[in-house]
């Protein structure tokens, strides 16, 4: 009975709360960041680390809600329709730009449904192979792949996954279509790579670094502009013979269209603070990535990135002719 009274009192108190959030007093309550993927994945991890740090700066809890499914488009669609009051945000990765082409019936208009807060990080990719594959360097791998185009297999973690995108980009760069082998998630794909059932994969450092260090798979190149501290012996694709081959799983923070500029600016400032948090920097480093520089953690930089990436991936995806709906 007491609990009943308590809950009625609680409901009553809620009615009495002042209406509508104003930009001056923002934030007044808990902020939810939607991650459009399952809990425990790399994007979820990145988000939780950043959210924890942003909570300290904003003085309000920033909590993470996982809305997985359909390559991240369900979660993005949810945020696109949310109230533009700064209390529902979206942290999405490169998939934001590629799903604009991969999905022909997207429930939102990628470029016009969101306000921008800033870039969070750009996770490098690695071109890896089963450990007994013959070629010793990237040049050799490319020759080998061209010579055996109908038997060399390229694993990926499903349509729209980072490994799928990078695999497409690789085949497009070496102008040779190879045998694509899709898996459901990174786990099974990596297992088959370890077991030597498939030949090549291109995946984020988050998933490959430890395996490369452990010698269970072979690394040919990283796709970042410079070598990585965690993998000092692995050359960049540029050095190893694929000029211009740069693919990164960039992550951005968005708000629904119509969120007041003061609020997105405030969030952007908070993001910049979080990205300098030593704990965030250290954890990102363990994952083989680094926070985006302050100049990139801004609305303008994210907007430019999204537009550029949509334009970059559209022809690659259309050439592959594979869609996710």
């Amino acid at each position: 009975m007491k609990s009943l009274l308590a809950s009625i009192a609680l409901a009553g108190a809620a009615f009495a709360l002042p209406h509508a959030a104003s930009a001056q007093t923002y934030p007044e309550r808990t902020i939810t960041v939607v991650v459009p993927f399952a809990a425990g994945g790399p994007t979820d991890t990145v988000t939780r680390l950043v959210a924890e740090s942003m909570s300290k700066d904003l003085g309000q809890q920033v909590i993470v809600e996982n809305v997985g499914g359909a390559g991240g488009t369900l979660g993005a669609g949810r945020v696109a329709q949310a109230d533009p009051d700064g209390y529902t945000l979206l942290l999405h990765h490169i998939g934001m730009s590629t799903s604009a082409t991969l999905y022909r019936k997207l429930p939102y208009d990628t470029l016009n449904a969101f306000e921008y807060i800033g870039l969070v990080t750009d996770v490098p990719m690695t071109i890896v192979a089963r450990k007994d594959l013959e070629p010793t360097d990237l040049k050799g791998l490319i020759e080998y792949a061209k010579a055996n185009a109908d038997t060399v297999t390229v694993a990926n973690a499903g349509i729209g996954a980072a490994s799928h995108l990078c695999g497409m980009m690789f085949m497009s760069a070496i102008e040779t279509p190879l045998v694509t082998v899709p898996y459901k998630g990174t786990g099974p794909a990596m297992t088959d790579l370890l077991g030597g059932q498939v030949d090549i994969m291109c995946d984020q450092t988050t998933n490959t670094t430890k395996q490369i260090q452990g010698g269970t798979i072979k690394a040919y190149a990283v796709t970042s502009p410079a070598r990585l501290d965690v993998l000092p012996d692995v050359p960049t694709a540029e050095e190893a013979g694929l000029p211009g081959f740069q693919v990164g799983i960039w992550h951005g923070l968005y708000a629904p269209k119509g969120t007041p500029a003061e609020i997105t600016e405030r969030l952007s400032k908070s993001l910049q603070v979080a990205l300098k948090d030593p704990n965030v920097v250290a954890r990102f480093a363990e994952l083989g990535t680094a926070p985006s520089p302050e100049a990139d953690a801004t609305p303008a930089a994210l907007k430019a990135k999204l537009e550029a990436e949509i334009a970059r991936w559209k022809p690659v995806i259309e050439a592959a002719g594979q869609y996710a709906d």
Partner: peptide, 30 residues
């Protein structure tokens, strides 16, 4: 498979790996 390879066998193990990463341990073969 999670402990020796760093690979999740099921959704629960995927969550465990997420927890390890958050704690600063990236699971792998070592």
């Amino acid at each position: 498979p999670m402990l020796t390879l760093g690979i999740p066998a099921n959704p629960v193990m995927a969550l465990m790996i997420g927890a390890m990463i958050i704690q600063g341990i990236v699971p792998g073969p070592n």
